[in-house]
Measured scan of single mutants.
Amino acid sequence: MPVRRGHVAPQNTFLDTIIRKFEGQSRKFIIANARVENCAVIYCNDGFCELCGYSRAEVMQRPCTCDFLHGPRTQRRAAAQIAQALLGAEERKVEIAFYRKDGSCFLCLVDVVPVKNEDGAVIMFILNFEVVMEKDMVGSPAHDTNHRGPPTSWLAPGRAKTFRLKLPALLALTARESSVRSGGAGGAGAPGAVVVDVDLTPAAPSSESLALDEVTAMDNHVAGLGPAEERRALVGPGSPPRSAPGQLPSPRAHSLNPDASGSSCSLARTRSRESCASVRRASSADDIEAMRAGVLPPPPRHASTGAMHPLRSGLLNSTSDSDLVRYRTISKIPQITLNFVDLKGDPFLASPTSDREIIAPKIKERTHNVTEKVTQVLSLGADVLPEYKLQAPRIHRWTILHYSPFKAVWDWLILLLVIYTAVFTPYSAAFLLKETEEGPPATECGYACQPLAVVDLIVDIMFIVDILINFRTTYVNANEEVVSHPGRIAVHYFKGWFLIDMVAAIPFDLLI
Rank of each mutant, 00 (worst) to 15 (best):
P310T: 10
A80M: 14
A244F: 01
S264W: 14
P298W: 04
G314Y: 08
C105P: 15
P251K: 13
N117Y: 15
S278T: 07
G139E: 13
D323C: 05
R312V: 11
L171M: 15
S379K: 05
N317F: 09
F22D: 05
D213R: 15
F14Q: 12
T174G: 15
T174A: 14
L267T: 12
T162D: 15
R242I: 09
F163W: 08
I18M: 12
H254D: 12
G238Q: 07
R159T: 11
A360D: 15
E58F: 06
P10Q: 05
I358W: 13
G306R: 12
A277S: 14
P72F: 01
V341Y: 04
S178E: 10
P297Y: 07
M308L: 07
A293W: 13
V8D: 15
R271M: 06
K373N: 01
N317Q: 07
S182K: 09
R164G: 14
L338V: 09
S331P: 09
Q84I: 05
A228G: 07
G192Q: 12
S351Y: 04
L378N: 03
A211G: 06
E50I: 05
G186H: 14
R5K: 13
R269F: 12
R164V: 07
L349K: 14
P150H: 09
E177R: 09
A360I: 10
F98T: 01
I82K: 01
C39S: 12
P258S: 13
Y54F: 14
P258Y: 09
A217T: 06
P114A: 01
N117D: 06
R73F: 03
M137V: 07
E134T: 15
E372Q: 12
R181M: 06
A142M: 09
S320M: 15
T152C: 06
R100N: 04
Q247W: 14
H302V: 11
E37V: 07
G71Q: 01
A121G: 13
E50S: 06
P2V: 06
R326H: 07
G262D: 10
K93N: 13
C276G: 09
E23D: 09
P114C: 01
R77G: 10
G53E: 01
I359C: 07
E37K: 07
T74D: 01
G306V: 07
Q61I: 01
E214R: 08
R73C: 08
D111N: 13
S182D: 05
A89C: 13
Y54M: 01
M124R: 03
T319K: 07
H309N: 14
I96H: 01
C64Q: 01
Y54I: 01
R326N: 09
S209I: 13
F98A: 01
I359T: 04
K28N: 15
C52N: 01
P240T: 14
F129D: 01
R27K: 11
N38W: 01
T65F: 05
A285K: 07
A9K: 14
P251H: 15
G6C: 11
D213V: 05
M308Q: 11
Y43H: 02
S318D: 11
T145S: 15
P10N: 12
G120F: 07
N146L: 15
L155C: 11
R356P: 12
C52A: 13
A188N: 06
V377P: 04
S304M: 15
P227V: 09
K101D: 01
P347T: 14
C108M: 01
E208L: 06
A260D: 15
S182P: 05
G246C: 10
G149N: 07
K28M: 13
L338N: 11
G236D: 15
E289Y: 01
R301N: 09
S243H: 15
K166E: 09
F348H: 15
L380A: 03
S272M: 09
D111I: 03
H254K: 13
V384G: 04
D111P: 01
R281I: 03
R328Q: 11
K373R: 10
V222E: 13
K362G: 06
D323A: 12
E372W: 07
A293C: 12
H143L: 06
E23T: 07
L69C: 01
R181K: 13
S26P: 07
L212E: 06
L210M: 15
V3N: 14
A160T: 05
M308A: 11
T270P: 09
R5L: 15
I358C: 12
G139D: 09
P352N: 07
T201D: 07
R176A: 05
G226P: 07
L349I: 10
C105W: 15
D259S: 08
Q376M: 03
D144Y: 06
A282N: 14
G226Q: 06
S284A: 12
A188R: 10
N128C: 09
I123H: 09
